[in-house]
């Protein structure tokens, strides 16, 4: 479905992503862990076309994403759900969701996806006429994920979905991500140290200093005290 081959990304002379090889199968939920500032977000943005790689490949269903511009990448069903929201703050919740349907591939299934978003996050329906700039952190996070769903994605790259959320909201957000996976969408999620992100994942990666240093199944991580320490600081 999606894989990277010897992917390098740099900011000027500074290499941030180094020789990264990952793969995500259709309908799989992958969690990528790692300390802050070690290149996780840059990797996600490179996969989704927001940053051009220095070298290497990003392949999706046999096509080279690294050679496409972001409009074409989104049109292919790849969506990035940013950690820092990037919502349209002076537009309503509904308008933000409509903006998610910008890809032509999302237009026909707009009504169906909107119903699904409101089923996943009932609160969004209640506040659909509220300006996005007035939302709480949890509501804004739901809207960012909802906007991603509206693009009718095949692959969602979600950046730190639990960041800044209260524990009960984290559970809600992670449950919704699991629901999205059940719909057949592949999810590649970045987290820093939330064990719940590993519990719901099919596989996990650990990234340090721009390189993938571990790949395995969550059960391996939970059964190994050393790995638990590295992943979650437990």
């Amino acid at each position: 479905m999606l894989n990277t081959k010897n992917l390098y990304t740099s900011y000027g002379e500074l290499s941030v992503v180094k020789d990264v090889n990952i793969n995500v199968e259709k309908g799989e939920l992958i969690s990528l862990f790692g300390p802050n500032g070690h290149g996780k977000t840059t990797l996600l943005k490179t996969i989704c076309g927001l940053i051009k790689p220095k070298s290497g490949e990003v392949n999706f269903n046999g096509s080279r994403l690294d050679r496409m511009d972001i409009c074409e990448i989104v049109e292919r069903g790849i969506v990035y759900v940013p950690e820092d929201r990037n919502l349209f703050t002076e537009m309503t919740v509904m308008e933000n969701l409509i903006m998610g349907t910008n890809p032509i591939r999302a237009r026909d299934s707009m009504k169906e996806n909107l119903d699904y978003v409101f089923q996943l996050f009932p609160k969004l329906e209640r506040i659909k006429d509220q300006l996005a700039g007035t939302l709480s952190g949890g509501e804004a996070r739901m809207l960012t994920v909802g906007r991603g769903i509206m693009s009718n994605p095949e692959f969602m790259a979600i950046d730190e979905p639990s960041l800044g959320l209260a524990p009960n909201l984290r559970v809600e957000v992670f449950n919704s991500i699991k629901e999205i996976q059940k719909r057949g969408v592949s999810v590649f999620m970045v987290e820093q140290s939330t064990s719940m992100a590993a519990e719901i994942a099919d596989r996990v990666y650990l990234m340090e200093e721009g390189q993938i240093v571990y790949e395995g199944e969550p059960s391996e991580v939970f059964s190994d005290s050393k790995l638990k320490q590295v992943f979650f600081g437990l």
Partner: peptide
């Protein structure tokens, strides 16, 4: 209109606009 909303979206968040695939 979709074009008008796109213009407002770019004004409010250029990065957000790219994320949703706006040209």
């Amino acid at each position: 209109t979709r074009v008008g909303m796109s213009m407002r979206a770019v004004a409010q968040s250029s990065e957000g606009a790219r994320i949703v695939g706006l040209d």
